[in-house]
Amino acid sequence: MTTYVSRPVRALRDRPTSGESATLVLRLGDADPDAVGDVVEERGGEVDAELAFDALRVVVPEEAVADVCELDGLDAVETDATLDAGDAGEDVEPPEER
């Protein structure tokens, strides 16, 4: 099965900014959470939280996003800024403060 990678994550993966980090939500699917955590840490990141529905929130350097997207068994890789629209969540930028 192919891992779903959201459009904002694809942009981070394809054009990472050196010195910046990304907060991602990984829906684990068949992936081993301990193995995923090990890879995240090896790439200079950390597991920030274990979430409901077999998901992890991780913070990784943007240069490591491509490696995270390639992990076996993940169902999806999204940013942590998603808009809940029923069954169709999409990554969004938070509104600017006025």
Score class of each variant (00 low, 15 high):
G45W: 00
V5S: 05
V92T: 10
S18T: 09
D75R: 10
G86L: 06
L74R: 00
E62D: 12
D48Q: 05
C69K: 04
L74I: 04
P94S: 03
G44H: 06
R43T: 08
A22D: 04
L74D: 00
R10F: 03
V47G: 07
V40T: 02
A81V: 09
D67H: 13
G19S: 12
E97F: 14
G45E: 03
L71W: 01
A31I: 10
D32R: 08
E96R: 06
V5C: 10
P16I: 02
T17W: 10
V77N: 05
P61Q: 05
G19W: 13
A64K: 02
P95M: 07
V40Q: 07
D48M: 05
E63S: 15
A55F: 00
R27V: 02
D80P: 02
D80N: 13
P8M: 13
R13W: 02
V77D: 02
E96A: 15
R27I: 00
P94Q: 07
P94R: 08
A76H: 01
R43P: 03
A11T: 12
D34N: 06
R98E: 13
D84I: 15
E50C: 01
E41W: 04
A35Y: 06
E70V: 12
A66F: 05
G29L: 06
D34W: 05
L24R: 01
L56H: 01
G45M: 07
A76R: 10
A31T: 08
E96M: 07
D91A: 04
P95Y: 08
A52Y: 13
T82N: 01
D38V: 04
V36C: 08
A88E: 15
A66V: 08
Y4R: 11
V92H: 06
R15G: 06
L12T: 07
T79Q: 09
G89F: 11
L51Y: 06
E46V: 11
F53R: 15
A22N: 07
F53D: 15
L28H: 03
L12N: 05
F53P: 09
L24H: 00
P61E: 08
V25G: 00
P95S: 04
F53A: 15
V39S: 05
A52L: 15
L51K: 03
V5D: 03
A66K: 11
G89M: 09
A66D: 15
A64Y: 10
T23Q: 02
D91W: 11
D48I: 08
E78T: 12
P33C: 06
V68W: 01
A52Q: 14
D67M: 08
L74S: 01
L51Q: 05
D14T: 11
G45H: 01
T2S: 10
A85R: 14
A64P: 10
P33N: 03
E62L: 07
R10W: 02
S21I: 07
M1H: 12
S18G: 07
A55L: 00
D34E: 13
T82V: 13
E50R: 09
E50N: 05
A22S: 14
T2Y: 04
D34A: 14
R13N: 06
G73N: 01
G44I: 08
D32N: 14
E93M: 08
S6Q: 09
V65K: 04
E93A: 10
V36D: 02
V36K: 00
R43S: 13
L83W: 13
G89W: 12
E42I: 03
A85Y: 14
G89R: 14
A49R: 08
S18I: 05
A64W: 04
P94V: 09
G86I: 06
E63D: 15
L28C: 05
D48S: 09
G86Q: 12
